[in-house]
Design a protein around this nucleic acid. Sequence first.
DNA 1: TTAATTTAGTTTCATATGTAACTTATTGCA
DNA 2: TGCAATAAGTTACATATGAAACTAAATTAA
Lengths: 154, 154
Amino acid sequence: MDKTLILQDFLPYRLSVLSNRISRSIAQLYEKQFRLTMPEWRVMAILGEKSGLSAGQVADRTAMDKVAVSRAVASLMAAGRLDRKTASDDRRRSVLSLSKKGKDVYAKVVPLACDYEARLIERLSPLDRRNLDVVLSKLTEIQIKTAVPGETTR
Amino acid sequence: MDKTLILQDFLPYRLSVLSNRISRSIAQLYEKQFRLTMPEWRVMAILGEKSGLSAGQVADRTAMDKVAVSRAVASLMAAGRLDRKTASDDRRRSVLSLSKKGKDVYAKVVPLACDYEARLIERLSPLDRRNLDVVLSKLTEIQIKTAVPGETTR
DNA sequence: TTAATTTAGTTTCATATGTAACTTATTGCA
DNA sequence: TGCAATAAGTTACATATGAAACTAAATTAA
């Protein structure tokens, strides 16, 4: 046998395991209690940050694909958590924002999410946190440039 | 509105986006060319590292759930890429290893994966690499307790 | 022993997700 | 203008995934 891959040391694998575990933990904070799926929460989070985006803009900013956004928007609309208007200058485009009900949910979920993140990083030293931030940014930057042609850059 | 969450700065979100992008890029290296799904590749990778594991041991080591392992093993068997025996001391347990054909595939995929990782981290300074390694290890060790309201601990 | 319990692994079923095809609106350009 | 090409979003279809039920084997306890 020529070469062996040590999965436990393989960066993409380590990242994937860590990220999936964290995502699942956070999802637990809102899925049951607020009947929110992860894509729904992402859409709400981005609209809570900046209102009036179109579905496409939401997709760009959340790294979701447009079908996922479309579905999340549909279910959020059905739950009365979003307002949707048609853009006056382009009738294909929607203009999305959190409804009153949506804002109430948002205001309840944000502290849970922030609290989780705080408890995650409080065990890292300030230097570790800084290093994490720097390295994540660099990798994200690299990753974008490394994107294979034919892959959806989203 | 009291509090706003900046998604772009939120650690779990950043990790998730980065990890998904990397995973998809790597999957592209083997999915089409070798007709391998990601769970199948994980099973092969762990068996290439250590032969003779049971399905349960594969699940533990790869952070996959047992259903995913069962399905990946079934399809790898169908493709003739695994050998499966029954453990002599416990006839419920299987003893899995890469077949000749499986080893051939493994030997071809490993360099592609290693090469991808190398290209990813070659753009980080040695210090950044070290920092990444340290911080990933620390984060992976941290286990956050998420008390879900209305649920009792078993 | 043998009946109850636990464990390894598989199957079933309901849901989630991605790709491609589609619909409608806009734009580019002859 | 008017017609082809493009863009925003949705729908359809096929596949992936996870939870729970299930099967068979091993273990425990009576």
